[in-house]
Amino acid sequence: MKFGIQINEGPYTHEASTTALNFVSAAVEAGHEVFRVFFYHDGVNNGTRYTTPPQDDRNIVEAWSELAEKHNIDLVVCVAAAQRRGIVDEGEQERNGKDGNNIAPGFRISGLGQLIEAGIQCDRLVVFGD
């Protein structure tokens, strides 16, 4: 079965992203395809490679990057939400004249249409948030 995932919260304040990570891991383990994870609202904060948690805490951003690479999962950060919250890739850096970028490996910035498309293409869309 083909899954789409929406995440509305950042990596650490809420449990949402951790729940979603565990859910996605279990889904691919069971042989399902996770077509896309769409990060919206503060969920875009899952996509910055500058995240540096203390050593005794999990690195959620890296966990997403690794999971995406291993299972070919499309990690999409909403552009409008990302611009508000300072999540930047090279293209956005150039377009908005910023002095750097912070997007994590495996993530890409794109439009809200990617969420609707996931809803159309996937057999199930599961939302994690607060």
């Binding site: 079965m1 899954f3 565990n22 859910f23 891991s25 279990a26 889904a27 383990e29 069971a30 399902h32 199930r124 869309l125 599961v126 939302v127």
Partner: peptide, 15 residues
């Protein structure tokens, strides 16, 4: 567990 959670999302038509 999580695999049971995934199964529930499969067994129901939507979430």
């Amino acid at each position: 567990d999580y695999s049971g959670f995934v199964k529930l999302t499969v067994d129901n038509d939507k979430v």
